[in-house]
Structures are given as C-alpha cells and as structure tokens.
Design a protein around this nucleic acid. Structure first.
Lengths: 196, 196
DNA sequence: TAATAAAACTAACGGTTGTTAGGACTTGAA
DNA sequence: TTCAAGTCCTAACAACCGTTAGTTTTATTA
C-alpha cells in the first residue's frame, strides 16, 4: 500500500520532519493536525507513529536541529581572528542565508518554540539566550575596540536578529530583488544606517 | 453569580477582547480555548457568547482595531510638512511606543492574523500591504531628496518594521535599559548604523 | 413591586484532536 | 521458503473543541 517515499537517502523520519516543517510554517504548530501531516506524507495518520513518538517530537526535532546549526556557525566565527565588525557581518550573512534558503524551519522555530513542553522548553530557552549572549559579547568587544558605535549591545543584537527575520516575506514579494542585492541592502542598512 | 466585571467604563465585550489579547499573546490564537478565556474572564465559556459572536470575532476585533490605530498615525505623518528622514523617525518612534506599551496586541496581530477567515483575511492582508506601501513611498521620497541613503526602499521598510518588533523580548529582559534609552538606541542603530 | 431585559448558568451537540490496539501485508535475510 | 522485522491499514479511544439550546438568576425600569 501507500508506502512513505523516502526520496534520496533520507530516513522516513527525516521525510516526515521535512513535511512537518512546511506544514507548521503554513498553518502554525497548534493549528496543524497529524491528519493534515499524514495526508501530505501520503499515509494514514496512525502510520506516522511507526516513525515518530509524538507530534511534539517533530517540533523538538525542528527546533534543536536548527539550534545546533546556529551554534556550529557561531563556534566557527568565534574562532576566527578577524575584525569584530567583520564577525558581526558574517553573523548577519549567515542569518540572511538561513532566512532565504531555510525560511520554513527558521520561521517555525521562531514562532512556535514556545509550544515545546518541559524540559525541552527550558532547554531551548537557555540555548536561545546563550546564543544571543555570545553575539552580544562580540558586539561589546567591537565597541571596546572602537570598531562599532557605542550602543547598547543587547538592543543591537535584538534588532539585528529580528531585522533579518523580516525578510521572510521577501519570498512572497512581487517585484523581487535578487537574493544577493537583498543581502547587500540589509548589511548596508544595518551597518551604515538609513540616513545619509 | 459571577458577573463579568466591566472595570472602569469599558464594555463587557471590550473586557473580553482585552483578556483575549493577553491570552492569545501567551498561548497563540489556535492554542487558546474559549474555556481558557472564560476562566480568565471569570465566567463559563457559554456565557461569553452573550457578548461576542465567535472566537474569530475576537481576533478580528484585535487585528482591525490595531490596523486602524496604525493607519491614523500614518495619516497624520503624511500630512506633516517635515523632512522625510524625520517622518521616518516618527514612524519608528510610533512603532517603538506601540511595542513597549501595547505589545500583547501588536504581537498577536503579527503572529496570528493569518488565522483570520475570509473575507477578513484578504481585507487585512490588503490593509497591511497598503500600510507598508505608504511607508515605502515616504522612504523613496526621502531617497529622491537625498535625505536617505540610496537603498532598496521595500527592503528598508521590512527591516525597520521587524527590527522594532524584536524588542518585544525587552519586557522579559533582566537588566532592562529604560524605555527612553531603548528608543534612542534603536533610532541610532537604524538611522546611523552599527559601524563607526 | 411587578415586568422586562440582560447576562449568567448547566447540559449537551457534533466534530476534531493526538494517540493506541490489533491485524494484514511487504520486505529482506537465513 | 520460512521467519522476523518493519510498516501499513482500519477502528476506535478519551479528551477537548467551538458553539447552541434552554433555563435560571440578576439588573433595570415602570
């Protein structure tokens, strides 16, 4: 009967998680039902439970895989020996890239991580804060070295991260500028400001 | 029995909408139940329907009241005869103020407006796009007059609006800077940039 | 104080939710 | 070819959902 097609070399579980990301992105975690998901996977709802433990496990999978991805990136950037303003630029470029090429996952994580249950909720919350703190430290060091304007670093980090998440709607925009132009515009605005 | 306390001079419906905003903010629209809401209002779920027509009407109320508020503000700013960079600054200050003093509503609208049903969904979507277009026009005129850097205006608008929405978490931040400092920092960053 | 309107209650509806039980079929290895 | 593991199915569960009906209580007005 209708077998789950594990295209390429992906586990069936991975296929389910991928479809779940798309579904959660479109309807939100809470408004998405397992029967919705099953239909997209091409299987009955009950069959999903041969591959996953619960609906929430899907959200966990999505959140923590994304978190790991982000952590790996900032690991690399911290190790680099480059000007701090350049480190900030690289962080921004990474976030922009993610928002362009992995936006379903990024948006689901941002919007729905609060629906994790304990202890994952606290775990994820801590990871999130730790991540922001590491960026804040980079901004602060940039300020100390005179490479960055003397602003409140935590505020700057909030702005940077959320400014980038705004371009999610770029995907649906009619007169799209190219991804490269988009990236350069964002960097120009955030690093040099709107004013002349 | 437990009567809905219409504190101050608010309609009972207004009281319900206010409690709904808080609830939706905390749990999201879809994950909030009418029994949840009823408990917070201090009444049985069925009793709510003496004052409202449906759960979705609450979301409509929240979304369109907020939209009206935003529209009125940009009406006033468009009428002004001031430098365009100053108009942009005023728009930003308004959004910051809303995010600080009315953040539950702002966040609910931003996160959950997609759960509106037709025709309200289309209506709201159009209002949203129109609003952004009006800001874009201001930015573009600012560029034409040389008050604003030559950037892609729609991108700039996306960044501005979402950068501000990031400060929602400022409410939960531990070492809070003052609201005034927060506002000045945001404006500094967005108008002059992070770099020195 | 009696009549009327407003707003609360209890009970229940039809539908949907995430999930489980149990059985049938398919696949790969021995 | 047989056996076991894996994966699908149908059926169903208990809980919860938004909402309605019908009734009783409270508040307003005459």
């Amino acid at each position: 009967m209708a077998k789950i097609k594990s295209s390429k070399n992906a586990t069936k579980k991975e296929t389910i998680v991928e479809k779940a990301s798309k579904l959660f992105f479109e309807k939100g975690f809470s408004a998405s039902s397992m029967r919705d998901l099953a239909e997209r996977v091409g299987v009955e709802a009950a069959s999903l439970y041969n591959h996953i433990r619960s609906k929430e496990e899907l959200l966990q999978e999505i959140c923590f895989k994304a978190a790991q991805h982000y952590t790996e990136n900032i690991d690399a950037i911290e190790r680099e020996d480059s000007p701090f303003i350049q480190k900030i630029e690289k962080i921004l470029r990474f976030h922009i890239d993610q928002m362009i090429n992995n936006y379903e996952v990024v948006q689901v994580v941002d919007r729905d991580w609060k629906h994790l249950s304990e202890p994952h909720l606290t775990n994820y919350h801590n990871e999130r804060r730790a991540y922001r703190k590491r960026i804040t430290a980079i901004v602060e060091e940039g300020i100390r070295r005179g490479e960055v304007k003397d602003i409140d670093a935590p505020t700057a980090v909030l702005i940077m991260l959320h400014a980038v998440s705004g371009i999610e709607s770029w995907h649906r925009s009619v007169q799209k500028i190219s991804a490269k132009d988009l990236e350069e515009n964002i960097l120009l605005i955030l690093l040099k400001g709107l004013g002349k």
